[in-house]
Amino acid sequence: MAMIRIELENDRRRLPMYLAAAGVIAIVAALYGIDRQVGLLHVLNFDAVRQYTGSILQDSASTVAAEAGHGNAEAGDRSASVTQSADAPLPMTVAIESAPVSQGRSQPRVTRPAVATATVVAQSPAESAASTPVTWWQTAQRMSRRLPRGTTVTRHVSHADGTFRLEGTSLSNQHDGLRQSVGMLHDLGLQPTLTFWRAGTSASTPSFAIQGFAGSDAPRTPPQRASMHVDALVHLAQDHARTAGLLRLSTLRPTHETWSPGNTRVEQGLSAVGDRSQVAAFGMALASESQVRLTSFSTESIEGGLLRVTASIDVLLGKEPSR
């Protein structure tokens, strides 16, 4: 066993720059003073010294800038790859009623990372023992199956308060079937509204949106905790995403909202990419998580038959979080 030696030096990298600058300034000041008092350095062109020291400072500054630029470029490359795929056009949509087998043929397989969860902060057994109702989430996920065959759903949003929204495209000759499906949803008491529109040219496939209220058995308030570690929410969501095998994880900045005197509601969003089964596993894990509440869950079809999932979880803190 060896001693743990991490380096947490705050100003180690800055020190040489400061020392160099201070040293050069001291030398210049000394030379200037000597020159003024005893005239020893009349032969030395002070402008040349100033230019020389300026070039030293400029060189060292540009070196630091170049190093920083290199690091930024590296990070930029990586983030660019994430952003590019996120903003890429959506050449394919997922046919909701087509057989999963046919989707699977054209769908590149997302490699699953090793399945393991790791949390540095242990949870109290009492916290993990409680179960969370997931019926609302399961109902929402089944909603698209009620639409007629051939309808294409491109976006599906469901919230813990029971509201949902389905967006997609449907040929004109299928609109009657779509209306009938919405009528059935109405009979079930889901208060659906159906909207059609045509984007772009008249030749494009008409789009539709259905929104309604499916009811919810999700907790009305977030789980309350006395305190929470920095990034605990991100940590939890990322662990579930990795366990499900999702890739291209991207976290959003958490939002803080005063819930009641002394209580702060913290909400954390996360998006990732995966196939249908991976997204479903991720959603189920979050919906049944007892430490946090799943507040919204949306899927959007992207290239290669994959889905981009965006989820938000929240928690109620008894005191202001540290970040």
């Binding site: 947490l8 990070a75 976290t251």
Partner: peptide
Amino acid sequence: WEARQSLEDDYDDFVLDVLQTSRY
């Protein structure tokens, strides 16, 4: 890289290092 993703805008506010063991 993960730390940068996680910290986002706060990245420059932290000094970071990494510890590697045989498992983690």
